[in-house]
Design a protein around this nucleic acid. Structure first.
Lengths: 212, 212
DNA sequence: ACCTGAACACCGTTCAAGT
DNA sequence: ACCTGAACACCGTTCAAGT
């Protein structure tokens, strides 16, 4: 919540009133997203911030930019947690724990999962997407480590892992039943723990080259 | 595609022109949904059917009604398949196969998953929801049978099962990667196959009733 | 340099007028 | 009984005019 950094996170010196409006917008956005979900009319946010709608667009050209800003703290935390878990003692469970926390993060606002998933595969590199990239990078590391330790199935890829967390959160949004999320994740995790034996590399079996 | 039944599926005698418009609307809706996804402007559908927008609303008060109508055939098929599988030889795999087909069904139109999932938990009993009820009923049967056979974990519930299919389809929509869907389902299914041993019902262990 | 809000575009939904 | 499309509401986005 200590978010009075400037738009580009550089020390781009904003005029005093602009900085003030910027901060008001971020606070208003957080409040509105929390209260009415990630699809709340942008106009409502501007109104709450007591700012013209044009000002909102000036600072945040797209809704995703606003979402990304408001999620900054959460994103930092989930990334930090990932790094911590990366040096945990049980690679498989470390990955799993991270996914659990990722699902929570994804549920920050109602309707957020759709926005996140969209940006996750959108062509245009939005801000939200940038966070996603960092998150999948970390996911890759955690996954690779767990797979190397032979604790997680080798045919799993980051996309599914990450989007699984998303979809669990999505299911939570739809059903409003935290139990469903918990149970689904439990199934998923058990599935992830299933390790197919390494294809018995037949010691130099005479592979005959066949014609045609 | 043989869909010239009347709105309420009764022989409610529609006036000839009304029936014609109705059929045109269904055909147009199918075409538009296929081409532009489940969110296509209703106006586009009316235009393609060469019918006033009011006529569309008269026949289909909500977008869900239109979706439900256009999905009738698919819904019937998935239900029928479920019944077939119900008398399959391998309860666990029968359930799993059904989920696979359910995921396909859910992907009929781009953007359909969201609509389906929404209606799945919506309060107001829309048409779409009605289909969903039938589907979960069948899912319950398949699941119960598989669990009774000891082939599927006992803590799984229908909601997750169904919504898992939905979310797999959803992931397909997002990533446009059929491989991701396949891999996710594989993980999920392995998770479903994990059967925790029945809590060893200690043969009449002397359960002492404790005070307080 | 930044803010404002009117103006425009777009889509959903209703309803008075028509046949 | 049914159809039509103008009319209204709503939200996103832009931009000319203002400070």
């Amino acid at each position: 919540m200590s978010t009075s950094t400037s738009p580009k996170d550089r020390a781009a010196p904003l005029r005093a009133d602009a900085q003030r409006n910027y901060d008001l917008l971020v606070a208003a956005a957080d409040a509105e997203f929390t209260a009415h979900g990630a699809d709340v009319p942008l106009e409502d946010i501007a109104r709450r911030a007591e700012v013209g709608i044009g000002t909102l667009y000036r600072h945040f050209p797209t809704r995703d930019d606003l979402l990304a800003k408001v999620l900054t703290d959460g994103t930092a935390i989930i990334l930090e947690r990932g790094r911590e878990l990366l040096s945990g003692s049980s690679p498989g469970e470390d990955l799993i724990q991270w996914i659990r926390e990722l699902a929570d993060y994804t549920a920050t606002y109602r309707g957020l999962t759709a926005a996140l998933a969209n940006s996750y595969v959108s062509e245009t590199g939005t801000r939200l997407c940038t966070s996603c990239d960092a998150i999948s990078a970390l996911g890759s590391e955690l996954l690779a480590r767990a797979q190397a330790a032979g604790e997680i199935r080798r045919d799993a890829q980051v996309v599914e892992i990450i989007l699984s967390a998303h979809s669990a959160a999505w299911i939570g949004e739809q059903t409003k039943d935290p139990g469903a999320v918990r149970r689904l994740l439990a199934i998923l995790f058990d599935g992830l723990r299933v390790v197919t034996p390494k294809p018995v590399s037949k010691p130099r079996s005479k592979r005959v080259k066949v014609r045609r």
